[in-house]
Simulated scan of single mutants.
Amino acid sequence: MAGLELLSEQGYRVDGRRAGELRQLRARLGVFAQADGSAYLEQGNTKALAVVYGPHEILQADGGNYCASVNAATLAVIDAGIPMRDYVCACSAGFVEDTALADLNYVEEAAGGPQLALALLPKSDQIALLEMNARLHEDHLERILEAASKACKDIYLVLDQVVREHLQEVTALLGK
């Protein structure tokens, strides 16, 4: 992928987002009635399905596969009614042309620059997992971690809203 411009002079990425912007995020809980808990999550063109009673393969991959799977699994655990002190929210981040990018898509991952996956407990800011795939100068580490951390917190807001809406739907159904 040599020569591919991942960041325009105006600061836009190949898919039109700014450096810290998430891809479109959609999620649903309770997609399998026969499972103890399940969730479906779309993050950009990456689609993930998580079921508490066992793993399923990723439905479609467009980058951030591991992170999307962690987010879907968090929703499935919540749907199963398993108590959790905090959500586990994950997001990838990379570094291109002196700019930290949050929520990498496939093209950005395939470009081969420094990348990390961060799984964060957003309420306490505790890191559950931090994985890097390439060397990164220590001067850039804080910026890429900040981008990933902010993105994890943005994901938390979306996931929490999905959980709240699902609880309202279930409560309404039980009340009838």
Score class of each variant (00 low, 15 high):
Lys123Phe: 02
Val70Arg: 11
Tyr12Glu: 11
Leu6Tyr: 04
Glu109Trp: 08
Arg23Cys: 08
Asp62Gln: 12
Leu145Cys: 12
Glu142Ala: 15
Leu59Trp: 00
Ala35Ile: 04
Ala39Met: 06
Gly63Pro: 13
Gly63Glu: 11
Gly44Glu: 02
Ala128Tyr: 13
Leu25Ser: 09
Leu59Arg: 03
Asp154Phe: 03
Leu145Arg: 03
Gly44Ile: 01
Leu167Asp: 06
Arg85Phe: 00
His137Val: 01
Val70Phe: 09
Asp62Trp: 07
Ala35Cys: 06
Lys176Gln: 15
Gly113Leu: 10
Ala100Asn: 02
Met132Gly: 09
Ala111Thr: 02
Gly64Ile: 10
Lys176Trp: 11
Asp62Tyr: 10
Ala90Asp: 04
Ala110Ser: 14
Gly113Asp: 14
Ala2Met: 02
Cys91Asp: 03
Leu121Asp: 00
Glu5Gly: 03
Leu7Pro: 12
Glu97Thr: 13
Leu75Asn: 04
Leu120Ala: 06
Gly113Lys: 04
Ala147Phe: 07
Ala2Asn: 05
Arg17Ile: 07
Leu75Met: 06
Gln60Thr: 10
Ala148Lys: 09
Ser149Val: 05
Arg13Ser: 08
Gln34Glu: 13
Gly112Ala: 07
Cys67Val: 07
Gln115Lys: 11
Gln10Thr: 08
Pro122Gln: 09
Leu159Asp: 01
Tyr106Trp: 08
Phe32Gln: 09
Asp36Lys: 15
Ala80Thr: 05
Val96Trp: 12
Asn71Pro: 13
Tyr87Trp: 10
Gly3Ile: 04
Gln126Ile: 05
Arg164Leu: 12
Pro122Glu: 15
Lys150Leu: 15
Gly63Ala: 14
Val163Trp: 01
Arg18Ser: 06
Val52Ser: 07
Ala2His: 02
Ala27Gln: 00
Pro83Glu: 10
Lys153Cys: 10
Ile144Asn: 07
Leu173Trp: 05
Asp160Trp: 06
Leu129His: 14
Ala102Met: 14
Gln126Met: 08
Ser92Leu: 06
Ala93Trp: 06
Arg18Cys: 00
Tyr40Arg: 07
Gln34Pro: 01
Leu120Thr: 10
Thr171Pro: 00
Glu21Trp: 09
Ala134Phe: 01
Gln24Thr: 06
Val51Ala: 12
Pro83Asn: 01
Met1Pro: 04
Ile82Leu: 14
Asp160His: 13
Leu120Pro: 13
Leu25Gln: 08
Leu75Tyr: 02
Lys153Glu: 04
Gln60Tyr: 05
Ala147Thr: 10
Val170Met: 13
Gly54Leu: 14
Asp125His: 13
Val162Arg: 04
Glu142Asp: 10
Gln24Leu: 08
Leu49His: 00
Arg85Tyr: 03
Pro55Gly: 12
Ala147Glu: 05
Ala119Glu: 13
Glu42Gly: 02
Ala100Ser: 12
Leu129Ile: 06
Leu104Ser: 05
Tyr40Cys: 03
Cys152Met: 03
Val170Asp: 09
Glu165Gly: 01
Leu75Phe: 03
Ala119Arg: 13
Ala19Pro: 15
Val88Met: 14
Ala50Asp: 07
Ile78Lys: 15
Glu169Ile: 03
Ala35Phe: 00
